[in-house]
């Protein structure tokens, strides 16, 4: 088994002019682990995700994916990754089948027809294949996005709030699918969400980012113990209401 971390980020820093968006982010993600990236809006998690995806270049620090520099091996690395976000869509004028065919080609998926069929069935949406993507409900569109995200059996998957704006039933189905698929394929996942139930159910390890800095890291149980709280939601609120260097200070207990 190859022990090279899927992600190895060392002292990543990103500034936009005078603003420090990310300060000294170091993380190592092994194979077959789901890492939750948490933080309030503007904490720096989107910047971190964009750097991991190669959409934004870090100001300093080193980033290796599968043991290689993302900057110099971009295409080779991206072939082994995939991505889905609540804020990104597939072209609405194309049918689901056309969209998935296109991405299957881009990722070089072999036997793509069978693969798409299998994923659509797994996500309980085989009937959507010929539907126009722009006419899908939020839940259907999310599942189609997930289908696209798992098309190439990625070794690293980046999911940006995949259950945002979904009802509890669909959210549960999405979480179950992600977890099942991840176990089956030993995928490493970076997962961002504001839904703490998502995080508790899905993630093996958490990274809380606040004001550009990592303020807590560990398994959900470790983080709860560290903050002496009963739920991740309470931890989230405590961090959100604290200053960057003062996250353990006794914040008023969230109601």
């Amino acid at each position: 088994m190859n022990d090279t971390p899927v992600i190895e980020a060392i002292h990543l820093r990103k500034t936009f002019g005078e603003t420090v968006a990310l300060e000294d982010l170091s993380l190592s993600l092994p194979r077959n682990e789901i890492l939750g990236l948490l933080g309030v809006n503007g904490a720096g998690k989107t910047t971190a995700l964009n750097i991991l995806l190669g959409l934004t270049t870090p100001t300093s620090g080193s980033l290796r994916l599968f043991g290689r520099e993302l900057r110099t091996h971009r295409v080779e690395i991206l072939r082994r990754c995939n991505f889905a976000s609540a804020y990104v869509a597939l072209p609405g004028n194309l049918t689901v089948g056309q969209n998935l065919w296109t991405f299957a080609q881009l990722y070089g998926v072999k036997n793509h027809r069978a693969k798409v069929t299998e994923l659509l069935e797994h996500l309980e949406i085989p009937h959507l294949r010929k539907r126009v993507t722009g006419q899908l409900s939020a839940g259907e569109a999310t599942r189609v996005q997930l289908c696209k995200a798992f098309l190439n059996d990625p070794e690293l998957l980046l999911l940006d709030e995949p259950t945002a704006s979904l009802d509890p039933d669909i959210s549960d189905k999405v979480r179950t699918f992600i977890r099942a698929r991840q176990r089956e394929r030993q995928t490493s996942i970076v997962y961002t969400s504001h839904n703490m139930r998502d995080i508790e159910e899905v993630c093996d390890r958490l990274l809380f980012i606040h004001k550009g800095r990592v303020v807590a890291a560990g398994t959900p149980a470790e983080v709860l113990a560290l903050f002496q709280r009963d739920s991740l939601e309470d931890v989230f609120i405590q961090i959100a209401r604290s200053e960057a260097g003062d996250v353990f200070a006794a914040a008023p207990a969230p109601k």
């Binding site: 080779e76 991206l78 976000s85 990104v88 869509a89 597939l90 881009l106 990722y107």
Partner: peptide
């Protein structure tokens, strides 16, 4: 179509 990121994170040169 808000698809740009899907393309730019795909292995497309």
């Amino acid at each position: 179509t808000r698809n740009l990121l899907n393309i730019f994170v795909a292995p497309v040169r």
